[in-house]
């Protein structure tokens, strides 16, 4: 025979079974289910929030990288445009300079030619005038029979004074 404390009593077994199962049922329904559900919900929401934060971070980085790229592109574009503009300006200046030089050369050439022409014309006129004058003088000398050499010289001088080379 087992000592009293080692032999399970039927009454206690019965009550323990009934009450424990009742507690199990009631707790499962009114405590464990809502508690475990709430815990799961909260964990899910935390996990979701963390994932979203991560995603936002990645998106942010992507955005930042995109911005950076845009900025770099813009900078490069600006540099290229500036360079192009400078180049174009330089080219324009060069061509303008060349064109101006050429035009100036032409003008100078023309001027030179005009001067030459004028000079030639003037010389021709001088020559004509001189020839005409010489002929005139010679005619006048021949017309007046000059006796006096002094008077001749005087006459020549007066004629010459008259003529005035224009």
């Amino acid at each position: 025979m087992l000592p009293a404390f080692l032999s399970p009593e039927l009454g206690l077994i019965f009550w323990q079974l009934v009450i424990f199962l009742l507690v199990l049922f009631l707790l499962a329904k009114f405590a464990w289910k809502p508690i475990l559900l709430a815990l799961k919900e909260r964990e899910d929401s935390i996990e979701g929030a963390l994932r979203m934060a991560d995603q936002a971070k990645i998106e942010m980085q992507q955005l930042k990288a995109g911005n950076e790229k845009l900025l770099t592109d813009a900078r490069l574009e600006r540099d290229r445009m500036m360079q192009e503009a400078t180049q174009m300006a330089n080219q324009f200046r060069e061509t303008e300079k060349a064109r101006a030089t050429a035009e100036a050369n032409i003008i100078i050439q023309q001027a030179r030619e005009a001067i030459q022409q004028e000079k030639n014309a003037a010389l021709a006129e001088v020559k004509n005038t001189a020839a005409k004058l010489s002929l005139d003088i010679a005619e006048r000398i021949l017309r007046r029979e000059l006796t006096d050499p002094a008077a001749q010289t005087q006459l020549v001088d007066s004629y010459l004074k008259d003529v005035k080379l224009n």
Partner: peptide, 25 residues
């Protein structure tokens, strides 16, 4: 099937558990 001291204690602890964990819930 008497409500012995242990059964009474069992009922008490069952009520305590129900009160505590419904409060938690």
């Amino acid at each position: 099937f008497s409500i012995t001291k242990n059964v009474a204690g069992l009922i008490g602890s069952a009520i305590l558990m129900l009160v505590v964990f419904t409060a938690v819930a």
